[in-house]
Computed example of a mutant assay.
Amino acid sequence: MKLFEQVSLTQHVFCSTSMEMPSSLKKAFPSVKALPISNVIVDEKNNTIVWLHLHANQTIAAQLLEVKQKVHQARIIAMSDMPNDLEALAVFSMLAKAYCNTHAGVEVLMNIASVVEQGGIWIGESIMQKLLGQNEIEEQKLEKVLGTWSKLLTGRELEVAKAIAVGLTNKEIATQMHITERTVKAHVGAVLDKLQLKNRLQLALLVKDS
């Protein structure tokens, strides 16, 4: 019995610099090819989905930018060995269509591809809970800062807030701003306090929506 039948013709490509193609991805899409980014050719007649395996040698932004520059028409699904909310934030800030565990099961991968093929964005349960659940920004607080939030921050704090919005870690921000990680943490704490937010994810969403 087939678990899934593709209605549209979609080209699936797996790109990784450090691992072989996950067996579940091969089972889900038997025609999937493992190729380096430089060898991916987008078929304009059909959808092309690039399953990008993330690695630790570059920032998330740099990895996705490379794919977008080489195959800008492709839809990118980022795969992570250890998914986390901050990484997800960085992935979606670069306009990827989905973010998932590298070792996700066959049915999960099929569901993700189905959403992406139809032009949607697949957001994992954890980050969705933060967007819609108990950590949601209270409307009253949001109204206070939306549109004027940047005026509440110092120049350094604003720089940190914008860096967080593109998914940079404290270490990366420290390097970029030539300050210590301890100082970055202090800035982050001050920003969250001034804007009455609970975490970096809420801050990034506020920055991106403004």
Rank of each mutant, 00 (worst) to 15 (best):
L3D: 14
Q6V: 04
S16W: 05
E20V: 06
E20P: 03
M21A: 04
K27R: 12
K27N: 09
A28C: 02
F29Y: 12
V32K: 05
L35Y: 09
P36R: 03
P36T: 07
I41D: 08
D43C: 01
N47A: 08
I49W: 06
W51P: 00
L54A: 08
N57C: 05
V67D: 02
Q69A: 14
K70G: 00
R75T: 03
M79T: 04
S80E: 15
M82W: 12
P83F: 06
D85E: 12
L89K: 03
V91E: 03
F92D: 00
F92T: 03
F92G: 00
M94C: 14
C100K: 03
A104R: 08
G105H: 13
G105K: 13
V106I: 15
L109Y: 11
A113Y: 03
A113W: 01
E117N: 15
Q118T: 11
W122V: 02
W122Y: 15
M128F: 11
Q129Y: 13
Q129W: 12
L132T: 14
G133L: 08
I137S: 08
E139R: 13
E139K: 10
Q140S: 11
L153C: 04
A161D: 04
K162S: 02
A163V: 01
V166C: 10
E172W: 13
A174N: 02
Q176L: 14
M177V: 10
H178T: 09
R182I: 04
V184Q: 00
K185L: 09
A186E: 07
H187D: 08
L192Y: 03
Q196N: 12
L197C: 03
Q202H: 02
L203K: 00
A204Q: 01
L206M: 10
L206S: 02
S210T: 10
